[in-house]
Amino acid sequence: MDIFIQQIINGLVLGSIYALVALGYTMVYGILGLINFAHGEVVMIGALTALTAIGLLVPSGLPGPVVVLGGLLIAIPVCMTVGFTIERIAYRPLRNAPRLAPLITAIGVSIVLQQLAMIGWGRNYHTFPPLLPAAPHQFLGAAITDLQIIIIATAAALMAALVWLVTRTRLGRAMRATAENPAVARLMGVDVDRVISFTFVLGSALAAVAGVMVAANYSIAHYAMGFMLGLKAFTAAVLGGIGNLGGAMLGGLLLGIIESLAAGYIGDLTGGFLGSHYKDVFAFFVLILVLVFRPSGLMGEKVAERA
């Protein structure tokens, strides 16, 4: 039983990170109907910027958590700027282009960001200094660290804040209006361009937080770290129903837990035929199964055909 609880905790930690990154995908998709493939790279830039800042702050002798917070506060505006620039350069000029064109620019931007990061930060892996307490607590026989508790709590708090922003504020209403119908929103006095820019900036800020979390939890950051993470988060967003905030959270947590349980139990379930190397197969299989029965994801609304 303690092993099972441990696997659920593992899944929750992983899922919280997926969920935060997935929110960035889903917000952009909800408003523009566009897969921002470069989002994973923004996460990477957030992680590496924070690490550099932390490296500079460590000699100041401030307490560990303050240093990490300092790194985060520097990474957030940097990522916001990157997100803003990406939208201006790569996506805005293509707003009326065929649907696949922005997908290609997104891939292009992703490659460019990765290469720039490699030139700037080098090819080596960067490590996160031990600034946060790493000693695990015992919880029903399972281990969980302070950092992991912080990650789950921060992710939950940020998601709640985001939901509040989208459903309760004026800006949130403008975002929803733009998502519903940009042309009509414009007629109603919504500055659509600003709303879209804001969405990218907000998603990038979340990416920065996710980047710092990943770097802190796994103690490493690397110029190529964004791609796989982005892919998983995108899968999570689709699983939950892309364009839907609640769906991104649910999809992220679910994907994390599915992966953990699959890695832990798939071998026993299949009598040793399939092992933990098939955990991604299992995750994708669940995704396909969900989409066969709910073609718009778990929480996605049934949308009309969109060319």
Binding site: V238, H277, Y278, F284, L291, P295
Partner: peptide, 28 residues
Amino acid sequence: APTLKLRGDYLAIVTLGFGEIIRIFLNN
């Protein structure tokens, strides 16, 4: 066959998953 009902980006992620599944099987 299983993706007939899917559209646009949902189809994209399922095909992506299919590609990965084939690769993972070949690898293992």
